[in-house]
């Protein structure tokens, strides 16, 4: 599914290297968790995979379903089934959520050679997905993320994920700013999408999200590299001991 080899990335503006040789393999149907101290490069990894401007890849490669991911434009990656759930979903005043989602969906469908969904069909679909995820359908009438609470924003991300039906989803600190109930709802939404083909990369600082989204593999990211990999037990260990060992190493 995803193969990252020796990835080096720096910030375009000041040339500061953030990822310093990161290697990671994710197979279809797997859920990987990336944990690490603040400043380890967790969010950079998500942004680089999605193709955000402002980073320079100096070394290494990323292959996604056999194609060179780094050669694709942002929206082409999305069309290929890569979804990034943002740590801080962006507010777009004046743009109705429903219109936004329909545009996203139809652009993606068009790129995949599927027919456009009519306004009516899409509305039905969006309402059904919202109901599945226990999201108040009124959210569809509001401006994209504008004035949403932290919990609403994260739920809206999961709703988008459900509608866009990605093959590979990166969840960037989806747990940050959520209370336990909101966390459970978000996690249920993610779990409902798990199957043997779809893969997830869950980026988090805390172990608690992993109580709800059980990972197959856990990696520790420190100073731009994966420094340790293991099973779910590694997350428990980190919860107890913190990142002290890794911060020192960095």
């Amino acid at each position: 599914m995803l193969s990252i080899q020796n990835l080096h990335a720096q910030i375009e503006e000041d040339g500061k290297e953030i990822l310093k040789g990161l290697t990671l393999e994710i197979n279809p149907g797997e859920v990987h968790a990336i944990m690490g101290p603040n400043g380890a490069g967790k969010s950079t990894l998500g942004n680089v995979l999605a193709g955000k401007d402002g980073y320079v890849i100096t070394e290494g490669s990323v292959f996604y379903k056999g194609q060179d991911l780094l050669a694709l434009e942002v929206e082409e990656r999305a069309h290929a089934g890569l979804f990034l759930a943002f740590q801080y979903p962006v507010e777009i005043p004046g743009v109705q959520m429903l219109n936004f989602l329909r545009t996203c969906t139809n652009e993606t469908r068009a790129a995949r050679g599927l027919p456009e969904l009519s306004g009516m069909d899409f509305l039905k679909l969006a309402r059904a997905k919202a109901a599945e995820l226990k999201i108040n359908p009124d959210m569809l009438k509001r401006s994209v993320n504008s004035g949403f609470s932290g919990g609403e924003k994260k739920r809206a991300e999961v709703l988008q994920m459900a509608l866009l039906d990605p093959q590979f989803a990166v969840l960037d600190e989806t747990d940050s700013g959520l209370d336990i109930d909101a966390l459970r709802i978000v996690a249920e939404g993610v779990n409902a999408l798990r199957d043997d083909k779809r893969s997830f990369l869950v980026i988090t600082h805390y172990q608690r999200l992993l109580d709800y989204i059980k990972p197959d593999h856990v990696h520790v990211l420190a100073d731009g590299k994966i420094v340790r990999s293991g099973g779910p037990e590694l997350a428990m260990e980190l919860e107890e001991r913190g990142y002290v060992d890794y911060e020192k190493a960095a």
């Binding site: 999605a50 193709g51 955000k52 401007d53 434009e73 942002v74 929206e75 990656r77 999305a78 069309h79 979804f83 990034l84 943002f86 979903p89 962006v90 777009i92 936004f100 545009t103 996203c104 969906t105 652009e107 993606t108 790129a111 988008q160 866009l164």
Partner: peptide, 8 residues
């Protein structure tokens, strides 16, 4: 970036 990540 947000819109493009969603496929536009």
């Amino acid at each position: 970036f947000y819109c493009r990540q969603r496929g536009m």
